[in-house]
Amino acid sequence: MDVGIEGLTVTVAGARLVADLSVAAPAGTVVGLVGPNGSGKSTTLRSVYRALRPSAGRVLVDGDDLWRLTARDSARRVAALPQERHLEFDFTVAEVVAMGRSPHQGRLDRDSDTDREVCAAALRRVGADHLSARGFLTLSGGERQRVLIARALAQEPKVLVLDEPTNHLDIRHQLEILALVRATGVTALVALHDLNLAATACDVLYVLDDGGVVTSGSPCDVLTPDLLAAVFGVRAHVLEHPVTGAPQLVFSTALDPEGTL
């Protein structure tokens, strides 16, 4: 489904975190948000999975304004992997994935056969069906992310929102998680720190800085030495990936503030 963020402005406690920001994600694409720390990536994503109410602007999913839907209705369309990592109680993997069904269930409904099938399919999809009886807290970082993706898939969403899903993962798991997201075929909004990973995994990149969009387009068009110098303050050289042809970056030194290097 098409996702459109239009003129998004988010103000928290007097601080304007994001101002008049717009993003368009056509159905089935993987759209990456990149930018320095504090550029507004997480804030933008939070307003899509309804953790942070925008002060102005709209988030449209197939034309419907998400913030005009009920929380439940919205959770049937948008599923998310927030950055939260702390968990106090040891739910099993099966229980964590089953939570993904809650927007589809009434208050007193028990898990139906459909619910169980959807959850089992979601776990198979991420290759984690063997973990189902394990405690979530006993899993490795890569396993946890897989299970959380399964929970998101159990919501049967039209849109996936992932905030730094590859943080703290080794390189193999980073690649696997992003491959998994692409394989779902669901429209995805992903915030990423690693620009090379973003260039490989995303169809479209939005570069954010200071709460607004600097530029957007295909990774080839966006990741240029000039842009990297201007937005990230680093000196970069763009190479071509020998297999995929995606742009890959090699960095020299951070620029000094005057940019005289």
Partner: peptide, 23 residues
């Protein structure tokens, strides 16, 4: 008991709860 499922979501964290449709 009516909110048992919502409590599960809340135990996972406020952001996760929001993403699961529980304010």
């Amino acid at each position: 008991l009516l909110y048992a499922r919502a409590l599960n979501a809340l135990a996972m964290g406020d952001e996760t709860a929001a993403a699961l449709g529980v304010e």
